[in-house]
Design a protein around this nucleic acid. Structure first.
Lengths: 238, 238
DNA sequence: AAACCAAAAATGTGATCACAAACCTTAACC
DNA sequence: GGTTAAGGTTTGTGATCACATTTTTGGTTT
């Protein structure tokens, strides 16, 4: 069992309110999003079932669902793995995020009321706190919550599932970004976003969101880091 | 069995090369996309399994996959159905299509070579032929193929799955559109798109794609038709 | 020593079964 | 008559099993 690198998945408490399949889905989703599973590493139903201590059935369903969201890739061999990344694909994912999320932000703008604005302010504040404490994982989670809170202001929202799919695909590789980003001084684009919201200025909001996304992946400007990780991903367990 | 309206699904030949699950998935997907299943109608695994003459297992997996693509909706009761439509949601889906597809088109533009251009020309011609023959279903299919051929020119394409998800969600309600659109004279936006491609003019291409999408759903300009169908969808089998 | 091939182990797919929760029907009751 | 409560039925979930295909292994040949 050397070639098959061990998989370490953070297990959360299983709530009886959710089905086993849902719990497995959430667990695997978190593992994928945080790069706990090496891209290219073959995932087998029975192995995951052993790790998670459930029967193969819920794992089957969860894997299929994650594959449908492009978080996992099913090869012709019917083998499942986290997709490998390339520099070009990474770039396309980022540009897609910008296109869709700035659209979603503009569409949500008219629906943002005082309550929502306060919620955004609070999240922004929590992000600052987490940033000062250097808790990058928390920053990442809160940042997602901020974006989600913004887009879901639109009660007829239809793009969030698409956006989450992009987050899932970028997730494993963003971890690398944030870990190197520690030294990088971050301008708070969320403040810009919120002043744009107060002014109901859609264009300014789109600019702020675009800048926020671009800076979150600023390390893409240092291609050698991205390249090194992508190489790692490419040469991983075949 | 009056409340439970019968489901009529077009069955295609089952190819032994694909798994039963895949076949069921394709069959159900086609049925959803073409509005063969009434929005709100509760879908049960065993019923579909009887109709498709397969065991419940492949149906289970196919339903979960379609739900992950937002083609179906899983309610809290764990019941599965085609999501109901609202006028606002319809509008959001259309605007999302425009945002994402014009982005995808611009991103694909630099990769379009002579071969791809010829392929697009041929599809455009086939659409004209089908249009003259009044075969609206064929027009719809070919139109999708045209868009797909355009976006997939980009070898690092990541947005097509998202776009197809939007198509799936709009599908059941587009049928109504095209059926009323027969009388409507359609300007051929594909020609505009292709001349923009030849000039490598990204902005013009985006305008052409936007116009093409907007006209494909032109009936949204006649709100009463949309509204009537949405009402039908809303008041369908509870 | 590297390449090839057959046997053995492991894997995904699909079927069937058990069970608890949800749904529908029926009957009693206000 | 409309509402509620309890019964039986149907449904989704999850477990287990069988089988064909794939992957790995171990031995053989060039």
């Amino acid at each position: 069992m050397d070639k098959k690198s061990p998989i370490e998945i953070t297990l959360t408490e299983r709530d009886d309110a959710v089905t086993i399949t849902q719990w497995v889905y959430q667990t695997l989703r978190y593992a994928v999003m945080n790069g706990q599973i090496l891209p290219g590493r073959a995932l087998t139903i029975r192995e995951l079932a052993r790790i998670l201590d459930v029967s193969p059935m819920p794992v089957r369903e969860a894997l299929r669902q994650l594959a449908a969201e492009n978080a996992l890739e099913i090869q012709g061999n019917r083998r499942v793995m986290v997709p490998r990344m390339t520099a070009m694909k990474f770039n396309e994912l980022c540009e897609a995020r910008i296109a869709i999320e700035s659209h979603a932000a503009a569409r949500a703008l008219p629906y943002i009321d005082a309550t929502r604005l306060n919620q955004l302010r609070e999240l922004d504040h929590l992000i600052d706190v987490a940033q000062e404490q250097g808790d990058l994982e928390q920053v990442s989670i809160l940042n997602q919550n901020f974006h989600r809170a913004l887009y879901t202001a639109n009660p007829h929202q239809v793009t969030l599932p698409l956006i989450e799919s992009l987050w899932l695909q970028l997730g494993p590789f963003m971890r690398l970004a944030t870990s190197k980003l520690e030294e990088h001084y971050l301008i708070d684009r969320h403040n810009e976003a919120m002043s744009a919201i107060e002014k109901q200025d859609a264009f300014a909001l789109q600019l702020a969101i675009t800048a926020d996304i671009r800076e979150g992946i600023a390390f893409a400007g240092t291609p050698e880091l991205l390249h090194s990780f992508i190489e790692q991903s490419t040469h991983a367990v075949n």
